[in-house]
Design a protein around this nucleic acid. Structure first.
Length: 506
RNA sequence: GGCGUUAUGGUGUAACUGGUUAACACGUCGCCCUCUCAAGGCGAAGAGUCCGGGUUCGAGCCCCGGUAACGCUACCA
């Protein structure tokens, strides 16, 4: 049932283009990359774009850029091709359809005609009755002629997998091996009849992932811990198809400082942010490599070879060091906190270790790049009288944080509380808006109307938060040049700081 | 609520097949250096290994029972 241990190693990461590329993707990507490279295997990049509701058009390219920035290159993927393409799931819908039909035909899946509303109602009922929310299985017992009838009338349907026992079968649980934790067992009465094919004709993750991993000859599924609960469904699918299953490795989840799953509300998670804020890719990779402790202990190192000149150097290593010594098997299972403080220290170490030339080159390729500077120049040309004033108007483009005083950011007729509440609303709107003038302006204005904030108050507040001042180049253009990731971070930090100030005063 | 996973200073990690005063790094604090701030150097505080039992001469490592945190519980991944 399990994959032949001799099979050449093939692993993949499968990010979803639903927003900015995520540090979690980089982390899992790194582990997969190391695992493959250490075994002479292949590292595949697959784009899981089956969620059309959350699809973001620019996201895929940003994923490519960010992973390349970190030095994680893939052997097969949408942009580089490969023998098992296409590598974008939206281009494989026919494949999923065929495989879905296979399951329908061999009796391991069925069509379900329940509407979303009906299911929601059932779920609510179950919740109030303190029962686990489960699909009631209504359509599992539909007679063939009922199915035909529904099909004939064009009633929309989804396809669900049958979690055993099937009629006349005794299986009641599924056990699979997690390479890091050992055997994990799930009783089937806790596993729902998962939707495999949505009514829009797109597969869910569960179907697409199993079909693709099989067709792409993936030997090791190395993914985040959040998938453990759905692994039995995947195992059941491999069996339903009669396929060998890969090895499963579930990595610990990166956490916020408060131990919750890492999230943008509590921590910058966008790789674009880290790049634009001036983190070096080497430092980022190094830091991610520290998470989970896959590198051998410093003591083991010194015992074997020469003692580390400086103890802290045990924490400092490159991607190629990791290829030489990292052990995926040694990953610690407790979920590590993504601690910005230590990342910044590490980044500082890399900056200080760089030659003056390469440090300057880093500046010139990021925060002082021609493209960044020329965009900024365009914004201030008509607003300064000597070139020396350039910095007066633009320092916020080059600062890591700005802190407007209450006199600056609170509009005359508003209270601190109202202002912060409105800023929080602005953040929500900005998060959901494409980063162009045409979309930002109406979105912000609409919010202002809803909350009875004048355009002037509205924009002035945001200007204060972003630039630290009430006088600046045009706000939206500035935000666009500054970038979405960093702009959002600035608003979040502003709110955070004000919250801390408020609780401190009490 | 159900199911699953995890658990070593504030944070990341270490501790050989159970074996001495639980180690290193970040952070914090102090001192030195210094025109300032960093960097650098020196030093300190901070955990008795989630809790309770058990096995053992001996437990962070093994066993049992709790607890807590986190994840999943979608026609999202």
């Amino acid at each position: 049932m399990t994959i032949n241990p001799e099979a050449p190693v093939r692993v993949r990461i499968a990010p979803s283009p639903t927003g900015d590329p995520h540090v979690g993707t980089a982390y899992i990507g790194l582990i997969n990359y190391i695992y493959a490279r250490q075994r002479g295997g292949k590292f595949v990049l697959r784009i899981e774009d089956t969620d059309r509701a959350r699809f973001v058009a620019t996201s895929e390219q940003e994923i490519f850029n960010s992973l390349r920035w970190l030095g994680l290159s893939w052997d097969e993927g949408p942009d580089v091709g490969g023998p098992y393409g296409p590598y974008r799931q939206s281009e494989r819908t026919e494949i999923y359809r065929e495989h879905c039909d296979l399951l329908l035909a061999n009796g391991t899946a069925y069509r379900c005609f329940c509407t979303a509303e009906e299911l929601e109602a059932v779920r609510k009922q179950q919740m109030t009755a303190k029962l686990p929310p489960r699909y009631p299985g209504t359509c599992r017992h539909l007679k063939p002629e009922q199915v035909e009838g529904n099909l004939a009338t064009g009633k929309p349907f989804v396809v669900r997998m049958i979690v055993p026992p099937h009629a006349g079968e005794a299986t009641t649980s599924t056990t699979f091996r997690d390479e890091l934790r050992g055997d994990i067992t799930f009783e089937h009465n806790n596993v729902d009849d998962q939707v495999l094919m949505k009514s829009d004709g797109f597969p869910t993750y569960h179907l697409a992932n199993v079909v693709d991993d099989h067709l792409m000859h993936i030997t090791d599924v190395i993914r985040a811990e959040e998938w453990i609960s759905s692994t039995p469904k995947h195992v059941l699918l491999y069996r339903a198809f009669g396929w060998q299953q890969p090895r499963f490795w579930h990595m610990p989840l990166l956490r916020n400082l408060d131990k919750s799953k890492i999230s943008k509300r509590k921590n910058p998670v966008s790789l674009i942010y880290y790049r634009q804020a001036g983190f070096l890719p080497e430092a980022m990779i190094n830091f991610l490599g520290l998470m989970g402790g896959g590198m051998p202990s410093p003591t083991a190192e010194t015992a074997a070879g020469q003692p580390a000149a400086k103890a802290s150097e045990a924490d400092i290593f490159s991607l190629s060091d990791m290829l030489a010594r990292f052990e995926v098997k040694n990953i610690r299972l407790g979920s590590p906190v993504f601690d910005l403080t230590k990342l910044k220290w590490l980044n500082g170490e890399y900056i200080r270790a760089a030659s003056p030339e390469s440090f300057f080159a880093s500046l010139r390729s990021t925060i002082l790049s021609d493209s960044y500077l020329s965009q900024i120049a365009a914004l201030v040309q008509t607003r300064i009288e000597t070139l020396g004033e350039f910095g007066n108007l633009t320092h916020f483009f080059f600062a890591d944080d700005v802190l407007p005083t209450p006199e600056v950011f609170i509009p005359k007729k508003r209270t601190l509380e109202d202002t912060l509440a409105f800023a929080a609303e602005q953040l929500t709107v900005l998060e959901a808006t494409d980063w162009t003038h045409e979309t930002l302006e109406p979105a912000l204005k609409q919010l202002g109307e809803e909350k009875q904030w004048s355009v002037k108050e509205n924009f002035m507040l945001l200007r204060a938060i972003i630039t630290g001042s009430t006088m600046s180049p045009p706000l939206l253009e500035s935000m666009i040049v500054f970038g979405k990731a960093r702009s959002l971070d600035r608003v979040r930090r502003f709110l955070d700081t004000q919250k801390k100030l408020a609780t401190g005063k009490r």
